[in-house]
Design a protein around this nucleic acid. Structure first.
Lengths: 341, 341
DNA sequence: GACGCGCATGACACCGGTGTCATAATGACA
DNA sequence: TGTCATTATGACACCGGTGTCATGCGCGTC
């Protein structure tokens, strides 16, 4: 492996000058720079990052934390953050953690002490540990949360507009003539659950429909809670003609429940989800849902984190991106409404 | 941050002795070791990995490469490799690459030159680049492939027994009385596709059934090719009473095709998949499939890679793990056979 | 009592960069 | 022509560990 000293020797300059060229520092003469660059290229030189890290006292590594996020979500997060990190000279260290355990929380702090990572990107549900966030903040370890559970904390985060997305898809169901629309909630300690419920309620109200609490069932984002909630809602009399589940996994559960009860979708029941994960297209019938711009969110979050790592101050703490309504075959005109016309 | 010198000073020993304690080297007196450990603990000392890496000339980081693997797969790979890496003092650097591009291939080599990573774990389809593997081998950069496309190359890999798994699930369908069993293949330049087909054929032969090439359709692992292949198979007369798709995504596609044609599963058609991804449980009806021990494979691969990194030679190049048959509701007795009894 | 040996420890160079500060060269300006 | 700011460059310590080799010591052996 060729070193900076070898380059310096061949170029007839000091190692510091080579270092300046490597780091694109301004105070280097045009001719010198070109000479050094040429030699670096001819020798196939690449700087040793371990040495850079030691000398700089920074690792230029971002820790990306996740636990059990859906994998489509993780994919988009990786895709987005890796591209930004690469552009800005950082690496991504993926870490599977359980922030509820003291052990993992300790380890995250230690990773920084060891100079393995400089800062963290949190994906849900990892961000759901205020004591950890406080500890990080106290040690001035930068971090950014993506689509966090809790939006009240005074720490930076980037998210999608759950409220508007939910309102839009509920509006759509209402526009299709549905009046009795079931709702299955996400995990209650995830703020998005409440926002999506609020969006649902806002749409009802805006359309002059009354909110019926019996049509709202709890869930936990998992497929099984969709099956259970769906089965329960479909026993209500009069039966809801549409069900909006707070995510696609649960919506797929609703489809299963409907199949099991012999109820055809969308003829007898419209089903809507949220997130637009690949599953949404792979169930029968494909789900009408709401797409979140996860890659965009991840890119923005990465930029923010790197800005923080480089000592900049952020113009704002919280960033919100709009969602997109995706209409597929799991929803249709309410037959009752069609008949009443 | 406290350094090794501070520890040495307080313990009244040389930095080298502290270094020995840190690295659990043998030649340290019992009393000295305990004294040093106590001081390290009291000062909350953690060694600086950047310094270690520089001094040792190794990064203790494993690059985990992937492209568009299914995310359940990636999850298990991460879960498995992270746990081993953690135990053995390594980190995992996740990397999204497209090995077909010269640029990404260059970058992988550069990452090693920069001492960012010491070796690589390849997940499909990333391993499908012989020129890259050769280049790595030539530079003696260790790597291990997980469930690789090509098993002929003389490089280490860990995989599951596609052949046996496919034979077992086909056996199961035959045991249920099916005689006309459609088959949808995976991507043909993936060796697993051929192994699964071979398993299917072996089961037919072992049961005295003749192989009918008209019942075998091409596919590419994607959901859509399952839809297409399923639709085509279901137009054959006499119609197959069962379809074995080479992975769960395509099997889900077959389910969709059946739904669209009004064919009920499993009453009129049994459907089987392969891989047991979460999707398998989330479609209707839940899929009978074959589970690969991905976490186990990932753990084994990580061990092998770290052994290589630490200069050991492997007892064998290729490792194969058995699969597990998972029976769910997408398969049932062949009604024709039941009637014929 | 001299010798050899195994164990415990330390001195010191070294890994390959970066940061700080000094210095030389150049040009503008009084 | 002297002064001073500006630009370009270099010397050298330093980051925080590890590897190599030398050394000291206690003890069994002849």
């Amino acid at each position: 492996m060729t070193t900076i000293r070898e380059i310096a020797r061949q170029a007839g300059v000091s190692v510091k000058t080579v270092s300046r060229v490597i780091n694109r520092e301004p105070m280097v003469g045009e001719a010198t720079r070109n000479r050094v660059l040429a030699i670096m290229k001819s020798l196939n030189y690449v700087p040793n990052v371990a040495a850079q890290r030691l000398a700089r006292g920074r690792s230029q590594v971002i820790g990306l934390l996740f636990q059990n996020a859906t994998w489509a979500y993780l994919h988009d997060v990786l895709e987005g953050s890796l591209s930004i990190a690469r552009d800005r000279g950082y690496s991504i260290l993926t870490r599977l953690v359980d922030v509820r355990t003291e052990r993992d929380r300790e380890e995250l702090l230690q990773m920084v002490a060891e100079q393995r990572v400089d800062g963290y990107l949190f994906t849900p549900p990892c961000d759901n540990a205020p004591e950890l966030l406080d500890a990080l903040h106290q040690r001035t370890i930068p971090f950014v949360r993506l689509t966090p559970h809790n939006r009240e904390l005074p720490y930076p985060h980037v998210t999608a507009s759950d409220f508007l997305g939910a309102r839009e898809i509920t509006d759509k169901l209402i526009a299709l003539g549905h009046r009795r629309i079931g709702f299955i909630m996400g995990d209650t300690d995830h703020i998005a659950s409440h926002d999506r419920l609020a969006g649902y309620r806002a749409a009802l109200q805006a359309n002059g429909l009354s909110f019926d609490p019996r049509l709202v069932l709890p869930g936990d984002w998992q497929f099984k809670s969709g099956t259970a909630g769906g089965a329960q809602l479909l026993q209500r009399r009069p039966r809801p003609t549409a069900i909006f589940a707070s995510n696609d996994d649960m919506a797929a559960g609703v489809l299963s429940a409907a199949h099991r009860l012999g109820i055809t979708v969308p003829a007898e029941l419209s089903v809507a989800g949220f997130d637009d994960v690949p599953l949404a297209e792979q169930v029968w019938p494909p789900l009408t849902t709401v797409r979140q711009p996860i890659q965009q969110i991840a890119r923005q979050a990465s930029h923010l984190l790197i800005d923080l790592l480089e000592g900049k101050t952020l113009p704002a703490l919280h960033y919100e991106f709009p969602t997109e309504l995706i209409v597929r075959e799991s929803t249709s005109l309410n037959p009752e409404a069609a008949g009443a016309r």
